[in-house]
Simulated scan of single mutants.
Amino acid sequence: MLLAILLPGISMILNGHILKGIVCGILHLTLIGWIPAAIWAVASHSEDLAEKRHRETLELLARQGRV
């Protein structure tokens, strides 16, 4: 999470969002754009975590025969 705030473009690239990471990195290069880039990176990171939890829940339910 700290990486998403300090280096938002690199954080997005490490999470597998290469094009978003490049755009975010370009936005981060401007002083005014750093704050929106950091917010975008944190939101993207949170969304990735939520999607991972969702997939894990679906796999658990599938193993139990509920889906």
Rank of each mutant, 00 (worst) to 15 (best):
M1C: 03
M1W: 02
L3N: 01
I5H: 03
I5E: 10
I5W: 15
L6D: 04
L7F: 12
P8T: 10
I10T: 15
I10D: 07
I10C: 08
I10Q: 02
S11V: 00
S11R: 08
M12P: 06
M12H: 03
M12Q: 15
I13A: 13
I13N: 00
G16T: 13
H17V: 00
I18H: 10
L19M: 14
K20R: 07
G21K: 06
G21S: 04
G21E: 13
I22G: 04
V23A: 12
C24N: 14
G25M: 06
G25W: 08
G25R: 08
I26C: 07
I26P: 00
I26Q: 02
I26W: 01
L27R: 00
L27C: 11
H28E: 10
L29D: 02
L29C: 13
L29A: 09
I32A: 09
G33I: 03
W34T: 05
W34Q: 12
I35L: 15
I35C: 06
P36V: 01
P36Y: 00
A37H: 04
A38N: 02
I39P: 06
W40G: 01
V42R: 00
V42A: 10
V42E: 11
D48W: 07
T57D: 14
E59Y: 08
L60F: 12
L61M: 15
R63F: 12
R63A: 13
Q64R: 09
Q64L: 15
V67G: 10
V67I: 14
